[in-house]
Design a protein around this nucleic acid. Structure first.
Length: 323
DNA sequence: AATTATTCCAACCGCAGTCCT
DNA sequence: CAGGACTGCGGTTGGAATAAT
C-alpha cells in the first residue's frame, strides 16, 4: 500500500521500480520546476528520470499541469466561471478537458472537482439525479439566471463604487453589460424584473466599445438600454424550436417550452469559443473578480441563503409544474 | 473540548488514442 | 505493419481541513 493506503498495482515496468507515490514534497516540486524551466515539458518518463525524481512520468505531468504550472489559476471559482462551467457542461457533458480549455488557468481536474463537489451536492439536496431532465431544467431556468443576476448585481455595485470614486455624475444605469474578449456579452435588463429576462447574445465590438476600449468591461451602459429592450429582430430566437436546436438533447416542448425571454445562450456558439481561447484569458472573469469576491461563490459564501432560495424555487416548481 | 460528519481537492488508476521504432 | 512506450482523459479515492453536534 502507498502513503494514501491505495493498493499498488504494477501495470507497467516503471511501477516495478521503487517509485514514490502520494503527496509531493517541496523538494520534489523544486526539482520538477527547475528541470522544466531548463529543458521544457514533455517526455515525462525521461523527464522524471533526468530530473532525479522517483516518480512516474504520469505523476510528474499531473503535478506540473494541475499544480506547478505558472499559469494555473488558484482560488475560488468565480460566478462567471461557474456560469460558463454550467453552460459548457450542458453542451458537452463530462468533457472536462474541453471545458477547461475555455477557462484559462483552470485545470480539468479542478473543474471536475467543482462539478462533483458543488453541483452534484445540490442535485443530491434536491433528491434528483444530476443527469435528470429536472435537474438540467433547474440549472437552466434557476441557477444560471440566478448566477447572471448575481454577477450583474456585483458588477453594478462595482460600477457604482467606481463612479463614486471618480465622482462621475453620469445618468443612472438601467442595464449593465459584460463584454468578453471577442464579441460575447452578457446583459441583464434592470428594467425587467423577471429573472428570466437575462440573456446571452452576440454583438459586434463596433456596437459597443468599452470606455477603455479594453476587451472587457463591466460598466454601466445606460445608452444601450433601448438596444436591449428592443424587440428581438429574430422572433424565432426565443422559440422552442430554435432552443431545441441548441439543446437537441432536451425536448423543449409542451410544459418544458422555454419561458418567454428565457435565459438564452444561443449567442455562445461553438465557433466563437476558439476565439475566446485565443485571447488567452477571459478578461471578464478577471475584471469582475473584485466585485464578485463578496459573493464569491454561489455555493460557498452565503450558501445557506442560496440553498434556501433554491429549495424554495424548486418547491414552487414542484407545486406548479413550471417555473 | 471532544467527537463525528462533511467538504474539498490532490493524486491515483485504468483505458484509449497517438507516437515512435 | 506490429508492438511497445507515451500521453491525455475521465473516474475514483482518501486524507486534511472544516463544520456540525
Amino acid at each position: 500500500m502507498d502513503e494514501k493506503g491505495r493498493s499498488l498495482k504494477n501495470n507497467n515496468m516503471e511501477d516495478e521500480m521503487d517509485l514514490k507515490r502520494g503527496p509531493w514534497t517541496a523538494e520534489e516540486d523544486f526539482k520538477l520546476i527547475n528541470y522544466i524551466a531548463t529543458h521544457g515539458e514533455g517526455r515525462w518518463n525521461s523527464l522524471s528520470r533526468c530530473a532525479g525524481l522517483q516518480r512516474t512520468g504520469k505523476s510528474c505531468r499531473l503535478r506540473w499541469l494541475n499544480y506547478l504550472r505558472p499559469d494555473v489559476r488558484r482560488g475560488n471559482i468565480t460566478l462567471e466561471e461557474q456560469l460558463l462551467i454550467l453552460e459548457l457542461h450542458s453542451r458537452w457533458g463530462n468533457r472536462w478537458s474541453k471545458i477547461a480549455q475555455y477557462l484559462p488557468g483552470r485545470t480539468d481536474n479542478e473543474i471536475k472537482n467543482y462539478w462533483r463537489t458543488r453541483v452534484q451536492k445540490h442535485a443530491k439536496q434536491l433528491k434528483c439525479d444530476v443527469n435528470s431532465q429536472q435537474f438540467k431544467d433547474t440549472m437552466k431556468y434557476l441557477w444560471m439566471p440566478r448566477l447572471v443576476e448575481r454577477i450583474q448585481s456585483a458588477s453594478a455595485s462595482a460600477s457604482a463604487a467606481a463612479a463614486a470614486a471618480t465622482t462621475t455624475t453620469g445618468s443612472a444605469a438601467t442595464s449593465s453589460c459584460i463584454t468578453t474578449s471577442n464579441n460575447q456579452f452578457m446583459t441583464y435588463d434592470y428594467n425587467n424584473n423577471n429573472n428570466m429576462g437575462q440573456q446571452f447574445g452576440v454583438m459586434n465590438n463596433n456596437d459597443y466599445i468599452t470606455p477603455e476600449n479594453s476587451s472587457v468591461a463591466v460598466s454601466p451602459v445606460s445608452d444601450l438600454t433601448d438596444y436591449y429592450n428592443a424587440p428581438n429582430p429574430n422572433p424565432e430566437y426565443y422559440s422552442g424550436q430554435v432552443a431545441n436546436s441548441y439543446y437537441p438533447e432536451q425536448n423543449l416542448v409542451g410544459p418544458q417550452m422555454l419561458p418567454e425571454n428565457y435565459f438564452d445562450y444561443s449567442g455562445l456558439l461553438d465557433e466563437d469559443l476558439p476565439a475566446m481561447q485565443e485571447q488567452s484569458s477571459l478578461n471578464w472573469f478577471e475584471n469582475i473578480d473584485g466585485a464578485a469576491s463578496s459573493s464569491d461563490s454561489l455555493w460557498n459564501i452565503g450558501e445557506s441563503d442560496e440553498d434556501f432560495w433554491f429549495l424554495q424555487q424548486q418547491q414552487q416548481f414542484n407545486n406548479n409544474g413550471s417555473f
